[in-house]
């Protein structure tokens, strides 16, 4: 199953030191080992940020977030002080 191919993931190959941490942490195998590491399945990226967090060379950048519509709605509603206290932060 794939979602809309709009993820903000980008990879600067020149900075890569080849530690392969990104191969290890990505839950959707977005990176691939060919001649060096390649960003070969960007369309599968879910922007969890695991690769960016664990890249010691800062070669990976991504706008991190959770693909959750109700979280987006809740974040929007939190801007209004009057409704904020009715929102329970019970989900992830």
């Amino acid at each position: 199953m794939k979602y809309l191919d709009v993820a903000t993931l980008s990879f600067e190959k020149e900075k890569c030191i080849g530690c392969k941490r990104c191969l290890e942490v990505c839950p959707h195998q977005v990176f691939e080992m060919r001649e060096g590491i390649e960003l070969s399945h960007k369309d599968k990226c879910i922007e969890c940020g695991a690769c960016q967090m664990n890249c010691p060379a800062s070669a990976i950048t991504v706008k991190v977030g959770t693909g959750c519509a109700s979280a987006v709605i809740k974040d929007y509603l939190k801007r209004f002080k009057s409704v904020r206290r009715f929102l329970k932060d019970k989900c992830c």
Binding site: M1, K2, I46, K63, G67, C68
Partner: peptide, 13 residues
């Protein structure tokens, strides 16, 4: 979308 394992924030937006 929030329950799945394959959606991204940019996609959901």
């Amino acid at each position: 979308t929030g329950s799945t394992t394959f959606t991204s924030l940019t996609g959901v937006e």
